[in-house]
């Protein structure tokens, strides 16, 4: 399978995400500049962490107007996997590919540390390699990671199993301790923690590996089915 990592001016976790994919799946990864208008050749697209366009207006608010995000919208609609990490999650909510919004942390500070997450869904293309209720260690690094949505939306997310990860101890005041959510079709995931920073032993955790491996496995099975049917 083939991956794209979209690079906005101000993205700064693009290389980290690409490296994590190569390390965990051995797949081909392209870094794609934000002016790309066609991403149809990719099976999975990552919107990486960072400060796209400086995040000067509001995190992710300008990136949503970039040609690449228009292309991401099309591919998401076509069922391709889209993973938004940190700033990428903010871009996805700003683009309405995911509901809710990410507000300033309740303590008003940037926060970077290893946190414990609870896996709330293990049937999605992103989480199938985890156990339901499993506790995993993944670092966070954000100033605006407090997930917010109206109570009906949160209830809906919960009922439909679209809350992928919850914080065991919320570091930012997110509603319902939400750390990551799935889109309606299940093929879009946005999460504030950085799985690409939990890949090898010396990083302090390897719990991020299975997220990329889940995506790889899901796509490869789909490709195998397609070949079998062809």
């Amino acid at each position: 399978m083939k991956w794209a990592v979209v690079v906005f001016p101000g993205s700064n976790c693009d290389e980290d995400a690409a490296q994590a994919v190569r390390e965990t799946t051995g797949d081909v990864v392209d870094l794609v500049w934000h002016d790309a208008t066609d991403l149809s050749e990719y099976d999975a697209i990552i919107l990486p962490g960072g400060f796209s366009y400086g995040d000067y207006l509001r995190s992710g608010a300008i990136a949503r107007f970039s040609p690449a995000v228009e292309a991401v919208r099309r591919e998401a609609g076509a069922g391709k996997l889209v993973l938004g990490i940190c700033n990428g999650f903010q871009v996805l909510t700003e683009s309405h590919l995911l509901p809710g919004a990410l507000l300033r942390n309740n303590h008003l500070q940037f926060r970077c540390e290893m946190v414990e997450l609870v896996v709330d869904n293990n049937t999605s293309p992103f989480t199938r390699a985890y156990q339901l209720g499993e506790r995993i260690q993944i670092p966070i690094a954000h100033g605006e990671g407090r997930f917010h949505a109206d109570p009906e939306t949160v209830e809906d997310l919960r009922k439909r199993g679209r809350i992928a990860f919850r914080y065991a101890h919320s570091p930012n005041g997110s509603v319902a301790d939400i750390a990551g959510i799935l889109g309606e079709g299940g093929n879009v995931l946005g999460l504030m923690p950085h799985p690409e920073r939990a890949i090898v032993d010396w990083m302090g955790s390897v719990d991020g590996r299975r997220l990329f491996q889940s995506m790889h496995q899901y796509v490869e099975e789909g490709l195998a089915d397609a070949r079998a049917n062809a």
Binding site: N12, C13, E15, D16, A20, Q109, C112, A141, H194
Partner: peptide
């Protein structure tokens, strides 16, 4: 130091709180 991103670039082997920081050569 928890207000600083201590891990971006994903090469931080030992960060703040250690006697010395170690950053991997990619």
């Amino acid at each position: 130091y928890r207000q600083y991103d201590t891990m971006v670039r994903a090469q931080t082997v030992m960060g703040p709180g250690s006697d010395a920081a170690l950053v991997k050569v990619p």
